[in-house]
Simulated scan of single mutants.
Amino acid sequence: MAQAITEVLQPAVWAAAMPVVVAVLAARTVPAGLGWGALAALFTAVVPFGAILYAKRTGRVTDHHISRREQRRGVLLVGIASVAVGLALFVALGAPRPLIAVIAVMLAVLAGTTAVNQVWKMSAHTAVSAGACTVLVLLVGPALAVGVLVVALIGWSRVHLGAHTVAQVLAGAVSGTVLAAGFYLAVV
């Protein structure tokens, strides 16, 4: 069960889903939202996860979760570059403001996680999921605060699998929440 949770709710899934959800909620029409969201997911999920898979195939990382902290820098920097390019493009194209805000959140959480992971293995799983849940609460309302249960479940799975300590999971959740709230509110 822990392995399934880790796979189904991994950062790449959140990075693909969040732009689509936010764009559909923010755009004038559902088709427009789907278009904006799909394009955003290219920069926030497809390119970054593609870099991870390429690094795995070429032996630069041992697994798609980049379990070894010292292997994280290169692929995470590719992810940061991709999200930054996407953010600049969406600003230039005049994308819906909440979509621009969620991409800015993704960039902040990814950059923060990357920085911390240079010295300590903070959980990207909980940072990304907590950031996504925070954005959903700010965008839709407090009813979505139940997302904290999803973040807790992800944290449990990471600890249960021996991928992180409780402190690493909690640090990820707190940093994801703080960065998401700050950047989302500053941009939107």
Rank of each mutant, 00 (worst) to 15 (best):
P96E: 03
V61D: 04
T126L: 02
A101R: 01
V150D: 00
A132Y: 10
V13R: 11
G94A: 00
L179T: 13
G182W: 11
G155T: 01
G112K: 11
V119H: 11
V24S: 05
A2R: 09
L34S: 14
A127C: 08
A92G: 01
N117H: 08
P98R: 02
A92C: 00
G176K: 14
V135K: 12
R60H: 10
V150H: 02
L9D: 08
P11L: 15
F183P: 01
G141T: 13
P31K: 08
G35F: 12
I154E: 03
I154R: 03
G176V: 13
R69E: 10
M106W: 05
I154P: 03
L136Y: 10
R28Y: 07
N117Y: 09
A88T: 05
L53V: 14
G141H: 13
R60N: 04
V46D: 02
S157A: 15
A38T: 14
V169H: 07
T177Q: 06
V102L: 07
A124H: 08
L9P: 08
A127N: 08
Q168W: 06
V148H: 10
A16T: 10
P11Q: 15
Y54V: 13
F183G: 00
T177W: 12
A26K: 03
M122F: 10
A16R: 05
L93I: 00
L136C: 12
Q3W: 12
Y54E: 01
L93D: 06
T58Q: 04
V169Y: 08
Y184K: 07
M1L: 13
S82V: 07
V22W: 00
V75F: 03
Q71T: 12
V20G: 04
P96L: 00
V21E: 01
I66E: 04
T114Q: 09
A40V: 05
V109A: 12
G74N: 06
Q118P: 06
A132T: 15
F183D: 00
A17N: 01
M122S: 11
A40T: 06
P142Y: 12
S175K: 07
A2C: 02
V169L: 08
M106I: 06
M106N: 14
M1S: 14
L138D: 15
V78I: 15
L139Q: 15
A15G: 11
F43S: 11
M122P: 02
H160A: 15
L185F: 12
P19K: 02
L179H: 12
A115Y: 10
